[in-house]
Amino acid sequence: MSQSESTLTSASAPLATRPRRNLFKEVSAAIEGYLYLSPTLIGLILFVFWPIVASFTLSLQRISPFGNRTRFVGLENYIRTLTSPDYWETVRVTLLFVLGTVPTGLILAVALAIALAYPLGRIDPLYRTLIFVPVVISSAVTGVLFKWLFHPVVGYINYWMLQLGLIESMQEGPNWFADRTWALVAVIVATTWRQLGFNVIVALAGVQNIDESYYDAAKVDGANAWQRIRHITLPLLSPTLFFLLIINIIYSFQAFGEIDVLTQGGPGRSTTTMVYAIYRIAFVDARDRGLASSQAYLLALMVMLMSYIQFVTVSRRVHYQ
């Protein structure tokens, strides 16, 4: 209450005394502004901006497993990281993971968005609900759901493969989490599924933003449905597609929950992506937070570069609308 009284007087008083109180007014407006911002600014400084510096400091240190002794080692952690075959293996797995999730997810999203944009009447909301729903599912729940579906003995996926005649008996089906290749496929399928709801929503918004008059003109010219998609929808959707491409690469770089629940990085290190390796090094295996921080920094530089590209396209996207 007291604050509303004080702002009340400072806001209503100045008219008569403006020339003398300009500086005072400016200072008090600034103080008031910063007060409104302070909870957010303090939160971001403590838990985002300061940790950027702290993370870099950590990456220059050698830290004993329980954190009781630290020693400055310069760039040693970066050199250890960049010369370690294990690190390059996580880079390879991450790239395979991105290649497995992103193109599939985008192609599916665009196909579904084009179909969903087609006016089908009263049943539309049902289709939307069935297709959008993964958007609210967590990575942990996704992991558990697919662990059950991919179960080699009692899981539905091998059973359906049997029904479809892809395999001749349940024993012949892939043992998803024991096989290096199939484990990565399983993690890719689960992650693509969870991302799909978000991707379709964004793609659909893009399709619906395309002006109807383009299609009307194409119809007059006798273009069929495929030609309209090929020469109108896809080119005009390209800013949205580019945006989705970048943000999906970022999300795939950061995928964690599905991997932790489904495979814990295994078998061997076949599903240990860069993020999963950072977690293992910092919290499970060596507990070497210096080494983990150096890898986090290398990962962050890549993600931030892509975020920057995405940020530029977002501002352009907003500008167009």
Partner: peptide
């Protein structure tokens, strides 16, 4: 700050 990935800040 939206561009800062969580992986960078969660250890500190």
């Amino acid at each position: 700050s939206l561009m800062v990935p969580f992986e960078l800040v969660f250890i500190p």
